[in-house]
Structures are given as structure tokens and as C-alpha cells.
Amino acid sequence: MFVRHGSLRRPLFLTVLVMTTAFSLTACGQNSPVADSAASSGATAAAQSDESAATDEGKESQGPTAIEGTVWVANEDGDSLSGIDAATGAVVTTVSGIESPHNVQVSPDGGTVWAVSGHANALVALDAATYELLGTAPTGASPAHVVVSPDGEQVLVTNSGDDTLSVYDAASLELRATLDLSAGPHGLRPTPDGTAVVVANTTAGTVDVVDTDTYEVTATIPVGDSPPQVAVAPDGRYAYVSLVGSSSVVKVDLVEKRVTGSVSVPSPPVQLYLTEDGTRLLSADQGTEDAPGSTVSVIDPGAMTVEATIPAGSGPHGVVIEPTGQRAWVTNLYDDTVSVIDLSTDETITTVPVGKKPNGVSYSPEPPAPGPATTSISVPNYATGAEGDHAEH
């Protein structure tokens, strides 16, 4: 059963938006071409010297790379999603009507915003260009996180209330499969090649590895106390898992199926995110409501050491990094804000107020489309009333 509004297949909206703002991130540009390659052989040394100088000058003059796109935030207690202009830090739209959205994910092409409603047991699809509802589908009990496969064809939802994984066709929202997982499935991430998805099971203290072709669990790996989320290395060999129970992050070899490293962080961590090149791992150190954390730890995933600790808001929960690795956005659960972090300086450069209790966060390379500042949608309630709530991760 699913409810569909319009078509989920649409052309990719390509909008070029060049904006210079007060908090554009500083980054190294690409090398500029060198001139005078036709110098005579008798002046080779001088030509090489001039070439080096021209290259250095080009590096200095090219300036920072502009950051564009849209950052989507799930405001769980605000029953809404916030869309933030990545270039300016301004909230450009608020979509209300999604009851208790715990997590949000943008499709690889940037065209669809996916969210889960924890109270309505619903998967929700929004058009990223118009902010209109495209469709909904029922999930299992208390859906926690949603991800989209790298090819954009599958949508996967963990159901923490009944220990299952739901797999949907992204175009039709039809349910492809439901499979049993270990206890308390929560955060999940696909491997870069899309052949598997790694799921953190908070109650079981394990990660499950699921084959996305056969929809079978191919491995269950013990990792530690209360793991809410994972990150997967670019080569697919390693997963990194946050552990609330021990205020640490562990490294898991997915081939050898065992933990191979660990590092402590200041407060119990929740979400993790790797830079696209896999050289830096960010941990949102949320803590608890009684003892909230206020830091983001920057971890060297090779050495499993903390190389920087960045102040954020109260209860850092969700984290996402844009593809160039220059900027990150972190949701602060207990003060209803998003911290914008410059990863070239490891500093928070601005704080954006959003809705109540912001949780999941996702980045889209597509700049905000013209649309209403506020809009409301209607999502069916698929819950029976017997389900329990998921843990606050």
C-alpha cells in the first residue's frame, strides 16, 4: 500500500547560483595553467622559474571555492523540515505536517527529499524543487533512519520498533522487501558501490551487513554498547561506529568482521560522517539531556586519534559534510540550532536557528529553488497505536 502524489521521476533541476557571502569558506583553488611553455632550450632554467612563479601566483589569485546547495534538517519535535541555503546560512523554507520526522535524506540527484515520520510510521517523499508532497508509504514500527542507494533506485528504512529493514522502489514507493535485523536497528549507510548496507543496532550492540541484491543479512558483527550510527569508508573495507555506552568511536573491518580500533570522544556520540576522500571523520558528541555535549570531534580514521575538537551547540546530534570537504553542518538537539563548521580552520563560523529538536541532516548540491517560505503537507498516519517510540539517537 502506498499513497502517491504526482510522479517521482522528474528531470534534474540544474540551477547555477554564484553567491559571494560574508562567510564563504576559504579553500585552496586548482592550479592555474602556466604560461610560456615555448621558451627556448637555452632559457630552460629561467622559463622553469617563471613557470613556478606563475603557478604560485595563480594559486593565490584563484581564491576560495564557493559553497552552494541546500541543507535539509529534520525537526523532530517541530513536526517539520527546514531547508537552509548552504551559501548564505539562511533558512529558505520550512515544510510542516510531518509528525516527528527523525531523519531526512536527499536523493543522489538532489531531486527528492526523503524523510521518516516516527509517529505516523510513514516514509515521505518531497519534491526538492517545489516542496510539494510526491508520495508516502507505510513503514514498520517506529522508523528511525532512511537512506537512498548510490544509484538512487532503492530507499531503505530501519524500523526500531519491530527490528526490521524496509526496502522500497524509489520511483514507485512500492515495498520490495522487509527483512529481520538484530535488536534496535537505527542508523545505516550503504557501501559506496551500493552492494551492501551497514546497520547499527542500538539494543544488540552489533552492526548488520545486508546484501542489497538478495536482501539477506550476510554478517552480524559485535561492536560495543549502544551503537546508533555508522560511516563507511570510500573503499568499503571499513565501517566506523559511534558507541553511546562508552563515549567512543570504533573501527570495524568488514572483511575480517571484527573491531580493529577505538578512540574516546568527550561525550556520548551519535551521528558520524566521513569526508568524501575518507581522510577525516566527524563525530557529533551529543551527550544526554541531563549532561549535554557541546563538541564535534575530528578523527583521523587511519590512526583512530582525535585531531581536533570543535565547539558546537548543545547536544550535537546529526552531521553532514559537503563533497569538497570544506564545510560541515551539525544539528544541535537541545538548543534548536545548526552549527556551520569551516573544516579548513576547524571552527564554527555561524549558528542557524531551525525548528524544535533538530535531528537528521542531509546535504544537496542543488541550490534552493524558488518556492514558498513555508508550506504544509498532509501525511497519512499508518501507525496502529501499539508501537513504542525509538530511542533518542
Rank of each mutant, 00 (worst) to 15 (best):
L165W: 14
L165G: 06
L165K: 09
L165Q: 03
L165E: 05
S166V: 02
S166D: 15
S166R: 06
S166C: 13
S166P: 02
S166F: 15
S166H: 14
S166K: 10
S166M: 14
V167L: 08
V167D: 02
V167E: 05
V167C: 05
V167H: 12
Y168S: 03
Y168A: 03
Y168V: 00
Y168R: 03
Y168W: 11
Y168G: 01
D169I: 01
D169M: 01
A170V: 01
A170D: 00
A170T: 03
A170W: 05
A170P: 02
A171E: 08
A171Y: 02
S172P: 00
S172F: 00
S172I: 00
S172D: 05
L173M: 15
L173P: 08
L173N: 09
L173Q: 14
L173Y: 09
L173V: 09
E174Q: 09
E174F: 00
E174I: 00
L175N: 15
L175S: 15
L175D: 09
L175G: 13
L175R: 15
L175F: 08
L175T: 13
L175Y: 05
R176P: 00
R176H: 00
R176M: 07
R176I: 00
R176F: 02
R176L: 09
R176G: 01
A177I: 02
A177H: 15
A177K: 14
A177N: 14
T178P: 06
T178D: 06
T178A: 10
L179S: 00
L179V: 06
L179D: 04
L179G: 05
L179T: 06
L179K: 02
L179R: 03
L179C: 03
D180E: 13
D180P: 04
D180A: 15
L181Q: 06
L181F: 04
L181M: 05
L181A: 03
L181K: 03
L181N: 04
L181R: 07
L181G: 06
S182P: 05
S182G: 14
S182T: 12
A183V: 08
A183Y: 11
A183N: 11
A183H: 15
G184D: 13
G184K: 13
G184V: 13
P185Y: 15
P185F: 08
P185I: 13
H186L: 07
H186T: 11
H186M: 14
H186F: 12
H186K: 10
H186E: 07
G187A: 02
G187D: 12
G187Q: 10
G187E: 10
G187S: 04
G187P: 09
G187R: 12
L188H: 14
L188S: 04
L188M: 12
L188F: 07
L188K: 03
L188Y: 01
R189T: 05
R189G: 06
R189Y: 11
R189F: 06
R189N: 12
R189K: 15
R189H: 11
R189D: 08
P190F: 09
P190D: 01
T191C: 01
T191L: 11
T191V: 07
T191W: 03
T191M: 10
P192L: 09
P192Y: 13
P192H: 10
P192G: 05
P192M: 08
P192V: 04
P192K: 11
P192W: 12
P192S: 10
D193M: 05
D193Y: 03
D193R: 04
D193F: 06
D193G: 02
D193H: 07
D193C: 11
G194E: 10
G194C: 06
G194R: 13
G194Q: 07
G194I: 12
G194W: 12
